[in-house]
Amino acid sequence: MQIFVKTLTGKTITLEVEPSDTIENVKAKIQDKEGIPPDQQRLIFAGKQLEDGRTLSDYNIQKESTSHLVLR
């Protein structure tokens, strides 16, 4: 499924993911596309910070959901 990640600069990154993917996996995909190390990434969805060990389905992130990327 596709999800979108919006950066603070207003850029939207499109990612191909599975509901069973962990947040860690998603951060690795963002690193592949954008070159941002996962330890600098914070992903926010529905006002919550997403934890590495959880999956997209844990957070009820469905296709075409948009989460926000904040850099630390």
Rank of each mutant, 00 (worst) to 15 (best):
P38M: 15
T7I: 12
L15H: 00
E34Q: 07
S65H: 08
Q49S: 09
T14N: 06
A28T: 10
I23A: 02
G47K: 04
G35E: 03
I3R: 01
K33S: 11
D58W: 11
V17A: 05
I36D: 02
G47E: 04
K11S: 07
N25S: 15
P37C: 07
K11E: 07
I61D: 01
T55D: 02
V5M: 03
K33H: 09
E34W: 15
T9Y: 14
V26M: 05
F45L: 07
K11C: 10
G53K: 11
V26A: 02
E64D: 14
P19Q: 07
I44D: 05
N25E: 12
Y59L: 06
Y59S: 02
K29V: 04
P19W: 08
E51S: 07
T12D: 04
Q40P: 02
K48S: 08
D52C: 06
K33F: 08
I44V: 10
T22C: 04
R42C: 15
G10F: 04
D32S: 12
P38L: 13
L8G: 11
G35F: 04
L71F: 06
E51G: 04
D21P: 00
F4S: 06
I30M: 03
F45Y: 13
K11T: 08
E18K: 14
A46L: 13
M1P: 02
D52W: 03
E16H: 11
Q40C: 13
G47C: 08
P38Y: 12
E51R: 09
I36G: 02
E64P: 06
D52S: 07
E24A: 15
Q41E: 01
E24P: 02
T9D: 12
L43T: 00
I30Q: 00
E34Y: 07
E18S: 14
E18R: 14
G47H: 05
P37F: 05
I36P: 03
N25V: 14
P19S: 08
Y59W: 02
E34A: 11
L71Y: 06
N60G: 15
E16I: 14
L8F: 13
E24F: 14
T7M: 15
I44M: 13
N60P: 03
L43A: 00
I3S: 00
L15I: 10
G10W: 05
I23V: 09
G35M: 04
I36E: 02
A28N: 11
M1D: 02
Y59V: 03
L8T: 12
D39F: 11
K6W: 09
M1L: 08
Q31W: 15
L50V: 04
F4G: 03
H68R: 08
E24H: 10
K29Y: 07
P38G: 07
P38N: 06
V17F: 03
P38A: 15
G10I: 02
L43Q: 00
L8Q: 13
V5H: 01
M1W: 13
N60C: 07
T22S: 08
L71N: 05
I36K: 02
G53M: 09
D32Y: 10
T14F: 08
V5S: 00
D32K: 13
S65K: 07
L69I: 13
Q62V: 12
F45H: 10
H68L: 15
K29T: 03
R54D: 05
H68G: 06
K48R: 11
N60M: 07
L69F: 05
S65W: 08
L43N: 00
V5L: 05
N60D: 10
Q41G: 03
T14E: 08
G53P: 06
Q49N: 12
N60S: 08
I23M: 03
T66E: 10
K11D: 07
K11Q: 08
I36T: 07
V17E: 00
L15M: 04
K48N: 09
V70G: 04
V5F: 06
D21K: 01
A28H: 12
D32T: 11
T14A: 09
I61S: 02
G10C: 09
G47F: 04
R54V: 05
E34D: 05
E34I: 15
P19Y: 07
T14Y: 08
S20E: 10
K48P: 01
P38W: 11
P19I: 08
L8E: 14
K33I: 14
P37W: 05
L43F: 03
D52L: 05
D21E: 09
E24S: 13
I23R: 00
Q40T: 08
I61T: 02
S20W: 14
K33D: 03
N60R: 07
N25A: 14
N25Y: 12
I3V: 05
H68P: 07
L15E: 00
Q41D: 01
A28D: 06
S57P: 02
Q40W: 09
I61G: 01
Q40N: 09
Q40V: 09
T9H: 13
T55W: 03
A28E: 09
M1C: 05
I61K: 01
N60A: 08
F4V: 10
S67V: 15
E18W: 13
Y59G: 01
T14P: 06
Q2A: 08
T55Q: 06
E16V: 12
I30Y: 02
R42K: 11
G35K: 06
K63C: 07
E16L: 13
E18L: 15
D39G: 11
V70A: 06
I13M: 05
S20F: 11
L43I: 08
Q31I: 02
E18H: 14
D58K: 02
G10N: 06
E51N: 07
E34G: 04
V5G: 01
L71G: 06
M1Q: 03
Q31F: 15
L56Y: 01
E64H: 13
V5P: 00
D39N: 12
Q2F: 13
Y59F: 04
E51D: 09
M1A: 03
T12W: 12
E64Y: 14
D39M: 09
P19K: 06
E18N: 13
E34M: 15
Q49I: 15
K33V: 12
S57R: 12
L15Y: 02
G35A: 05
R72W: 15
I30C: 01
K29L: 10
K63E: 12
M1F: 15
F45N: 04
Q41S: 04
I36Q: 02
K63M: 11
E16S: 11
A46Q: 15
S20N: 13
G10H: 05
V70I: 14
L8R: 11
I36M: 05
T14W: 07
V70N: 05
R72Q: 14
G53E: 09
I61V: 07
S65C: 08
D58G: 03
K48M: 13
R42H: 11
D52R: 04
N25D: 12
N60L: 05
F45D: 01
G53W: 14
L8D: 11
K6I: 14
S65Q: 08
D39R: 11
E51V: 09
V17L: 05
L69W: 03
H68N: 08
L43G: 00
I13E: 01
R54G: 05
A46D: 13
I30L: 07
T7C: 09
T22L: 10
K29Q: 09
K27S: 01
Q31R: 13
S65N: 10
P37T: 06
Q49C: 14
V5K: 00
T66I: 13
S20L: 09
P37Y: 05
K11N: 07
R42N: 11
T66M: 11
V70M: 11
L56H: 00
K27N: 01
K11P: 04
D39C: 13
S67E: 12
V17K: 00
Q62A: 10
L69A: 02
G47L: 03
F45P: 00
N60V: 04
E51K: 08
D58V: 03
F4K: 10
L8V: 12
G10E: 03
Q49H: 11
L8M: 13
A46I: 06
R54L: 10
I13A: 01
T7Q: 06
